Simulated assay, not measured.
Amino acid sequence: MLTTRHGVRPLGAADLDAFLALARRDPVVNVFADYRASTTNLEPRWLGGEMWGRFVGGTLAAACHVGANLVPVQATADDAAVFAERALARGRTVSTIVGPQEAVRVFWNGVAGSWGRPREARWEQPHLEIAESPHIDPDPLVRRTTKEDLDEVYPACVAMYTEEVGVSPEYGGGAELYRARVLQLISRGWSFARFDGDRLIFKAEVACATPYAAQIQGVYVPPECRGQGVATAGMAAVVELVRREIAPVVSLYVNDWNTPARAAYEKVGFRETARFATVMF
């Protein structure tokens, strides 16, 4: 087994079983990396990047997904520092660093001097999970969306992304790619919404899923519909649908300062199990 400095090397198809065993030490926190590995077989052409592994005594001890998103997997502070050293040698190619707070912080401290000033850093993001029925009655009108709903779903996705990230996903000519992503989620049965007549008043998507967990993204209620319990009942419905048909545990992460969203998730039954951090460029 050839490794580079500090036992780090890119993983490939032959490493898939070892990687999945590593990620599934915490299958909910690591759902994104598990999903990416399972759907790409760790082939770089499908990953759109690399999965780095750190080996200690010949055993895979930690990993790091390096694509559009850089995501540490089961990485201690020492692992994160080693991954940062490797990243410095190649320069920044990622748009986001996201994952467990300590690993992200250590990694960022290692590359900050060379990678330039981020657009935003969010250091306090509670990672929430629910592995039981929602604690409140779900909205019975929340359903999977179809391609016929795209004219309502797509603008809501753009509005949510812009509000959350601070820049439109359509910026710089990204509309076609983003529209394809929304259609992909609809086609997979991973897009959920509540309509009042023809008007969308709630939406959420599954970002990634494994047999162990599904991670929710894109929760959105139009401003004029907020404060009416729409998101709470809507999320209860999403939890019920996802747990019944996709995965037994539902997770998400939220900004610490988003008090209304945190209150809604708590009413549904989500509980904090970890802290994430995100650095965006």
Rank of each mutant, 00 (worst) to 15 (best):
A61R: 06
G110S: 14
S168D: 03
E50H: 14
R143F: 14
A81I: 03
D151A: 10
G166A: 09
L42K: 05
A68G: 10
I97P: 00
I136N: 08
I97S: 01
Y35Q: 10
Y35W: 14
P155N: 14
D79T: 02
K147C: 08
A75D: 01
W52Q: 02
I136P: 03
P100W: 02
H135Q: 12
T40V: 12
A156P: 00
T96D: 06
E132R: 15
D137F: 14
P44R: 12
T96S: 13
S38C: 10
W123M: 04
A63R: 00
A61M: 08
L47M: 10
W108G: 03
A81Y: 05
G49F: 07
P118W: 10
A180P: 03
E102Y: 02
V98Y: 04
G49R: 05
E85W: 06
A89Y: 10
L141Y: 14
R92C: 08
H65K: 12
S95Q: 13
M160P: 04
E124L: 13
R143L: 09
R117S: 13
E163L: 11
G113M: 09
A63I: 01
E102F: 02
T39V: 12
Q101A: 07
L177Y: 13
V73E: 00
E124K: 12
G91K: 15
A121V: 10
P140L: 12
G99K: 00
V73Y: 01
Y171R: 13
R92Q: 13
T145E: 06
H127G: 06
G67K: 06
A156L: 09
T59W: 13
T96G: 09
A84S: 11
E120F: 08
I97E: 01
A175V: 08
A87D: 02
H135E: 12
D79M: 01
L88C: 06
D149W: 07
R122I: 10
V73I: 11
A37E: 04
D79R: 00
A175W: 11
F55A: 00
W115S: 09
A84H: 03
V158W: 05
G172E: 04
D139I: 05
E176Y: 15
P118D: 07
A112E: 09
G48V: 06
Q74G: 01
Q101S: 09
P100F: 01
V71Y: 03
T40E: 06
Q74D: 01
P100K: 02
S133P: 09
S168V: 03
A180V: 14
E124V: 08
S114C: 15
R105Q: 04
R86V: 03
V82E: 00
G172A: 05
D151M: 12
G58E: 06
D79A: 01
G57T: 08
A156N: 07
V165M: 05
Q101I: 09
V56H: 12
V158C: 03
A37F: 08
F107A: 01
T93Q: 15
V111F: 07
Y35S: 11
T96R: 09
N69K: 13
V106C: 03
T145C: 11
Y161G: 02
S95H: 15
T39G: 10
E164F: 11
S114W: 15
V98Q: 03
H65I: 08
G110Q: 08
Y161F: 12
E163M: 06
A112R: 10
F55R: 01
S168W: 06
A175S: 10
W46L: 13
S95E: 08
V73W: 01
A121Q: 07
A75H: 02
A77F: 00
L141R: 15
N41H: 14
